[in-house]
Simulated assay, not measured.
Amino acid sequence: MYDAGVASQSTASARELQRVNGHARAGFRLSEGSTRLANLYQSGAAKIRLPKVYDEPTTAVLINTAGGLTGGDRLSLEFHLAVGAHAIVTSQAAERAYRSQTGPAKVTAKFQVGAGAKLEWLPQETILFDASNLSRTIEADLAEDAGLLMLESVILGRKAMGEKVRSVFFRDSWRIRRSGRLVFADDVRLEGDPEVFLAGPATTSGNLCVATLLDCSPQAEDHLNLARSLIGALPSDRVRAAASAWNGQLVARLTAVSGQDLRTALVSFLTGYRSAPLPRVWHC
Rank of each mutant, 00 (worst) to 15 (best):
S275L: 13
E120D: 10
T58D: 00
F28T: 03
E144R: 12
Q112N: 11
A105Y: 05
G248R: 01
G206D: 10
I127Y: 08
L30M: 15
G180R: 06
S258K: 07
S135V: 14
A241K: 01
E191W: 07
S258A: 11
F169W: 05
K159H: 14
S275D: 15
W174E: 08
M150Y: 04
R136N: 02
S91T: 12
N64P: 01
A245H: 07
Y273T: 02
Q260C: 03
A265R: 06
E191A: 15
V107I: 15
Y54F: 12
R253C: 06
S236I: 07
A109C: 13
K47I: 02
A46P: 00
L37A: 01
A202L: 15
I231K: 02
E139S: 14
K106G: 00
S268A: 14
T137N: 04
E32H: 14
T102P: 00
A14M: 05
L149E: 01
R29V: 07
A14D: 05
D215S: 13
L40G: 05
W121E: 11
A233K: 11
P218G: 09
G71P: 05
E56Q: 15
A94K: 06
K159T: 15
A143E: 14
D187I: 12
T108H: 06
P57D: 08
R171H: 10
V53M: 12
E144K: 13
R189V: 14
R158W: 10
T70D: 02
A199T: 01
R253H: 13
A276I: 01
D261H: 10
E139G: 04
R177D: 03
T108Y: 04
S135N: 03
V20S: 11
Q101G: 14
A199M: 00
E195A: 13
D187V: 14
E139C: 07
A256R: 07
E152Q: 12
Q112T: 09
S135L: 11
G162Y: 07
R175D: 11
V239M: 10
V20P: 00
G192W: 04
P123H: 03
G72Q: 06
S8H: 01
A146Q: 05
V168P: 07
S34F: 10
A82E: 15
A140S: 13
F197E: 03
L234H: 04
G68E: 03
I63L: 14
A140M: 04
E16Y: 04
K159N: 12
K118T: 11
R96T: 02
E32Y: 06
R15E: 05
T58V: 15
L270I: 09
K159L: 14
T204K: 08
T108A: 12
V165D: 07
L226F: 06
L182D: 11
Y41H: 14
V239H: 09
R25Y: 09
I127E: 05
L40P: 03
H86L: 06
V53Y: 03
R189A: 10
L208I: 06
G103R: 04
W282C: 03
T264L: 11
A26P: 09
